[in-house]
Design a protein around this nucleic acid. Sequence first.
DNA 1: TAAAAATAGTTGACGACGGAAACCATCCGC
DNA 2: GCGGATGGTTTCCGTCGTCAACTATTTTTA
Lengths: 145, 145
Amino acid sequence: MNKNIPEIYDLIQELSWRFGNHGFNGECCGDLSLIEFMTLKKIDECKEITIQEIGNAINFTKSGASKIIDRLESKGYAIRADSPVDGRLCCVLTTEKGRETLSGIVKQYTLNLNNILREIEPQEVDQIRESLTILVDALQRYKEG
Amino acid sequence: MNKNIPEIYDLIQELSWRFGNHGFNGECCGDLSLIEFMTLKKIDECKEITIQEIGNAINFTKSGASKIIDRLESKGYAIRADSPVDGRLCCVLTTEKGRETLSGIVKQYTLNLNNILREIEPQEVDQIRESLTILVDALQRYKEG
DNA sequence: TAAAAATAGTTGACGACGGAAACCATCCGC
DNA sequence: GCGGATGGTTTCCGTCGTCAACTATTTTTA
């Protein structure tokens, strides 16, 4: 095992914690919980996605996914539409309001991050981006096979 | 703003999500939730810590913190002890079983991470460690002032 | 082609979990 | 030594996700 792994594990854990639901002083994503936010983001990325797929994407049961959509729908951020090809399926879409909220949250987070990294040298910031890319890609590959 | 910030934000979010409570197929930390695990870790690092301090550390109310300790205590991973200096205070400590469980979880996570990074070049792994260190340090400084 | 099985989604009951506030015990300033 | 402050616990409550039962639609099969 590479000697750096334990330390990397620890660093990732710390990072995840601070960016998770309890970091940022509990202030997460406006009127969305972290899960609602990630779900909305997923819906927006996919343009159109079924309840089942949402459940798989966020590791929830279809029942749990359905209730998250209930909440997003009641806040006006997403809507359910009938599938034209299969009457059982339910296509979930983001609304314009949902997209605006999403980009507002991203903007806020990005500003925060910019403050956090304010004093870091540009070439180091570049290195951080590269490293994270490698890391996330490796995770993706690992997940897929 | 540095051009890389939005992408870095996105990468961190992705990373956090996968290492958070819902990543790893919901398999988090044995019989501990992520919060219980982080709390136990914090207790172990501090050797001895009050309920209030735990609450601050994990962004919970003292009430919530007290209940987490209830759970950790019922599982045999932590114990409450009276403070010798102040009768109101409650010193929380890890038990031997708690420490074993903690290190077991860390070992498991570390092995997973090793698999994930198996195909990454050593010098890249080194770069990842460096980058994450810079990032976490920056977060720490930001939090402190 | 009609019945049976499979699949997608919803709903209701339930348990787990944190927060708010009231409460208790202990400590500190006067 | 009394009154306020502080740390912790407890009770009540709202939120949330799962399980299992149910409905509706589609696919399989005999």
